[in-house]
Design a protein around this nucleic acid. Structure first.
Length: 539
RNA sequence: GCGGGCGUAGCUCAGUGGUAGAGCAUCACGUUGCCAACGUGAGGGUCGAGGGUUCAAGUCCCUUCGCCCGCUCCA
């Protein structure tokens, strides 16, 4: 739940040649990666659909995450405690009991009333606006001066107020009767420019049940994490999992962003891939664990492995950074947070958040325990007093949690931006350099020309590759038009390998393999194609 | 929500009040011998939407929707 911070982060590394977001968006539509939602009706702000290739790209990213996080956690690496990482998965609902969001803090956080200044176009959180009034609280018919603490307006307005009234005190704007005709906005010169406080509904609401009744109001989840927390007790009560272990989940979330922006980067409906990894609270650690397996050791483990993971699927190089939050950037309940950020064309030279890794203590589970009245304690039978029969008495605690929370759609966008390559020296200047594991189309099989038995041989190889690799992605074939055009089309779709049947195939059973990134070709026995592809795809 | 820019074919764009256009892409047929080849032909547009001015609106005016940029917001 760390806050996205586009445009943040040090731009210490030199900027790579800027890619044009317009060109990327244009290719995304042309090749069926991303379409505007409801486009034929004029579109709907903040929502995007995936076309055939985009859907597969997103699926490949999600599947890679599930595979590497849940099925074979952290590629089999041991955690800081020297044990294999344990992970299970859940699938919780978009709509939860409304109290879930009260407990999580989202109802209050999502419903900040704001006041706008009609003169300066400034917008301020209602509860942050203070007003300087005379010591006796009686300004008479003189104007009073509003400000927001820690902003330039504070000193400026105080000076003006003291000039008008002498000694002043500050009171909340909320304590003054509306309309605020005599209030000068924090950055305004004239009084009366502040609007009444208005609610910004940052959570979508809905009403379950056939009869619309405000009392039944529920919310579309703004994050998948709370579904995990709410079911955490059920998971450890009914599965043989032991702390430390994690619960993972992917799925859509909804935020009523004020300004959807930057293609799919800030959408109102988006998909997350979240882990809540439960660890032993520091006070229950024993012996060596205090140094090897404390929550911070797990935090660093996840932070570093998540960074490595993003690199492994193609986000290499200086466009990907790991940024540790400064102390003053941390939420009050978090003791350490870092972001994995990507330099998107629209954030450059800054970065936009892909994933946040936060050590959240026991804040969330404690909140749910408090609001639900259900004990969210885990009984750790590997700790506590050693009993005469050799077993442990066990201790009960609310586990601490490390939360690696990634944006799936943001990941897809980063893959698209990273893959997009322009090289005017190539016959196909625009191409998508996807990592083979992410590529929606894994391979294509072409007859060099549409005759002399080549199409038949191509069809056979195509069918064989589909049977073996079709579960990973598309295997294409195409006999129309010139070979160059077919290669170029595959380049734009990001297909890493093309196998071409030519005149020699019938004689010596070889085909050519063309590499997308270099255009280089070499010959390969037709029977060796599946093994070649398997090796390249890492399967 | 505010300010600025933009919206014409799948894509990129031309069209300053008078018959809706180009290149690329797509499809068909022919040709084909490794990098967006060539020939012939075809399909594809309520000019974002709605309203107004005018004999006549892609073009001028108003409203609205969407996208881009800058603010604002991003728990």
């Amino acid at each position: 739940m760390s806050s996205p911070t586009p445009d943040s982060a040090a731009a210490s590394t030199p900027a790579a040649p800027a890619k044009s977001m317009d060109a990327i968006m244009s290719l995304c539509k042309r090749r069926g990666f991303v379409y505007q939602a409801s486009e034929i009706y004029g579109g709907i702000n903040g929502f995007w659909d995936y076309g055939p290739l985009g859907t597969l790209l997103k699926r490949n990213l999600r599947e890679a995450w599930v595979q590497d996080v849940v099925m074979n956690p952290c590629w089999g690496r041991n955690g800081p405690d020297g044990q294999p990482v344990e992970m299970v998965m859940v699938d919780t609902r978009i709509i939860q009991h409304p109290k879930v969001w009260k407990a999580s803090g989202h109802v209050d956080g999502f419903n900040d009333p704001m006041v706008d200044c009609k003169l300066t176009k400034g917008r301020y959180r209602y509860d942050h606006v203070m007003v300087y009034v005379p010591e006796n609280g009686q300004p008479g018919d003189k104007p009073v001066f509003a400000y927001v603490g820690d902003q330039p307006s504070e000193a400026k307005q105080r000076k003006k107020a003291e000039k008008t009234f002498g000694k002043v005190i500050s009171v909340p704007l909320a304590s003054l009767p509306q309309p605020w005709a005599r209030v000068i906005g924090p950055d305004a010169e004239e009084p009366g420019s502040l609007t009444e406080p208005r609610m910004f509904n940052l959570m979508f609401d809905t009403v379950p049940g056939a009869i619309r009744d405000e009392a039944n109001k529920a919310y579309l989840r703004p994050e998948t994490a709370q579904g995990i927390f709410v079911q955490a007790k059920n998971v450890w009560d009914t599965n043989r999992v032991r702390v430390p272990f994690g619960i993972a989940q992917t799925g859509p979330s909804f935020r009523n962003e004020v300004t959807p922006r930057n293609f799919t980067f800030r959408s109102r409906e988006f998909e997350q891939m979240e882990i809540e990894f439960f660890v032993v609270p520091p006070e229950h650690l024993e012996g060596d664990e205090k140094t090897t397996a404390d929550p911070f050791a797990w935090y660093r483990f996840w932070r570093d492995w998540r960074m490595t993971w993003w690199q492994s699927i193609g986000l290499k190089g200086e466009n990907l950074i790991l940024r540790e939050h400064d102390k003053d950037e941390l939420a009050h309940y978090s003791q350490a947070t870092s972001d994995i950020e990507y330099r998107f064309p629209f954030t450059a030279p800054g970065f936009g958040e892909l994933e946040g890794i936060a050590y959240r203590g026991n804040f969330d589970l404690s909140q749910h325990q408090k609001h639900s009245g259900t004990k969210m304690e885990y009984r750790d039978t590997a700790r506590g007093e050693i009993l005469p029969n050799g077993s442990r008495r066990g201790v009960a605690y609310i586990p601490h949690v490390i939360e690696p929370s990634a944006g799936l759609d943001r990941g897809v966008l980063a893959l698209l931006c990273e893959a997009y390559t322009k090289d005017e020296s190539r016959p196909s200047p625009e191409f998508m350099k996807f990592h083979p594991r992410m590529a929606p189309i894994k391979a294509a099989v072409f007859p060099l020309v549409d005759k002399d038995g080549m199409p038949e041989t191509a069809a056979k190889l195509h069918a064989a590759l589909r049977k073996r690799f079709g579960h990973l992605g598309m295997i294409e074939t195409d006999a129309k038009q010139s070979i160059g055009k077919r290669y170029a089309r595959m380049d734009e779709a990001g297909c890493p390998f093309c196998f071409t049947i030519d005149g020699d195939t019938a004689k010596d059973q070889t085909v050519t393999v063309r590499d997308r990134d270099t255009g280089a070709q070499h010959r390969l026995n037709i029977d060796a194609v599946p093994a070649f592809l398997a090796e390249k795809l890492g399967v």
